[in-house]
Simulated assay, not measured.
Amino acid sequence: MSTPVHPREALLGAQAASVVLPVCDHYSGVEARMRKSLQLQAEMTEEFGACVFDVTLDCEDGAPVGGEADHAAMVVALAALAGDKARVAVRVHAVDHPAFEADMSLIAGKLSRHLCHIMVPKVESVADVIRAEKALLDASADNLPLHVLVESPLAVRNAFDIAAHPRVQSISFGLMDFVSAHGGAIPADGMSGKGQFTHPLVVRAKLEIASACHAHGKVPSHCVVTEFNDAVAMASAARQAASEFGYTRMWSIHPSQIRPILEAFSPSEDEVDGASKIMAAAALADWAPISFDGKLHDRASYRYFWQVLERAHQTGRALPPDAQAYFTSAAG
């Protein structure tokens, strides 16, 4: 009897992105909050059986002016203590900031084996990506991918070229800087609430970034929701980002935002159950076309339902035994 073929092998192009990332990226810029974030990550990893959010330690907005070097050293010491199951990243300064080179030399140089990626803000063009990559290489951190923040009209114009660079793993949208870059042409409500999902220029930017990422197999990451005390606004924004704008990842700036993001980006129990049954039937047919509940399915639809199962695993959803087996070490 032949060995069953794993969906990743059977379904060429089964993953829209070249890498699967946790759906939530949680930012902390103050040492006490960084420590609490890392502890929360460990607790929720134990709860869900998988690391369901990244922790990004912030050296850009988090560092006091004039204290950039000390802040970076603190981040290095803290990240080095994270456990083997932790997913920790660092946001450095922009490539044209005086502290950028020192950030990269210290952080990438000391933490290349501890970090999951480096986040570079205010990327305007491929030239900025190339400069950041050179800094990685100079720090002997060739293993680290780059995540980049697109925060201006020019950067949105260059999003497809930025996404095409092989070092870039994910693009995030910097909403507030993007609105500010328009010199008052976009009203303040474009930075929050319903405005960020209705103003034409903001909507266009979000769609351009999502489309650029999907075109090149990268992960589009949605911007922050500043109303972190408004659970309804948070949940609504996360659902819209996931279901209407094509984002597969989202920023959190407060611990209370993490679970709503996980919920919004998770498939429902019915979706998981249906996907599991279709994938089981497909595997029995050796991935040939099948009829299931009166509908034709083939590898095109199998790819979609495999992605549902991967998203369920990323967000800690319970999976039926047959589907869970795909995510054990033995299954690949």
Rank of each mutant, 00 (worst) to 15 (best):
I209A: 07
P166K: 11
R239Q: 14
H216E: 11
A188F: 05
P145E: 01
F197E: 04
F228P: 02
L146K: 05
G217F: 04
C223G: 12
L146V: 04
I171V: 14
E151V: 11
N143R: 14
S221C: 15
L175S: 02
H214E: 12
L201V: 14
A235N: 01
N229F: 11
T226C: 13
I186C: 10
A238V: 07
F178R: 02
V224P: 00
F178W: 09
C213N: 03
S192P: 00
P153Q: 04
Q240V: 06
C213Q: 01
S180E: 10
C223T: 14
A215V: 02
P153A: 10
D177I: 04
D161L: 13
F178N: 05
A241M: 13
Q240M: 15
Q169N: 06
P145Q: 06
S236D: 15
F178A: 02
V156S: 09
H214K: 13
D161I: 08
S192T: 09
A159M: 07
H222T: 03
A185D: 14
C223R: 05
G184P: 08
A181G: 03
V219Y: 08
N143H: 11
R157G: 13
I186E: 08
V232P: 01
R157F: 15
N229Y: 09
H214I: 07
N158D: 13
R204L: 07
G217V: 07
A233K: 08
V202N: 11
F178K: 05
D161F: 10
E227S: 14
D142V: 05
L144G: 09
D161M: 15
P153K: 00
N158I: 10
G190S: 01
V232S: 09
R239F: 02
A181E: 08
N143D: 15
P166C: 05
N158A: 12
P187A: 14
V203R: 13
H216I: 03
V224Q: 09
V225E: 09
F173V: 08
A233T: 02
M191F: 02
A188V: 14
A185L: 15
V219T: 10
Q240Y: 12
A155H: 13
T198G: 05
S221K: 12
A238H: 03
M191P: 03
P145I: 09
V202S: 04
P153F: 06
R157C: 12
L207I: 08
I171F: 05
H165I: 01
V202P: 07
A241P: 06
V148D: 10
A188T: 12
V179P: 13
A235V: 00
F228I: 09
D161P: 02
S172V: 07
F173R: 02
H216P: 00
K206W: 11
D189F: 11
R157Y: 15
D230E: 02
A164Y: 06
C223I: 00
R204I: 01
A185N: 15
A188L: 11
H216K: 12
D161T: 08
H182G: 02
G174T: 04
I162P: 06
I171S: 03
V202G: 04
A163H: 08
S211Y: 15
H214R: 12
R239N: 12
F173N: 12
L149S: 01
V224I: 15
A210Q: 01
G217W: 07
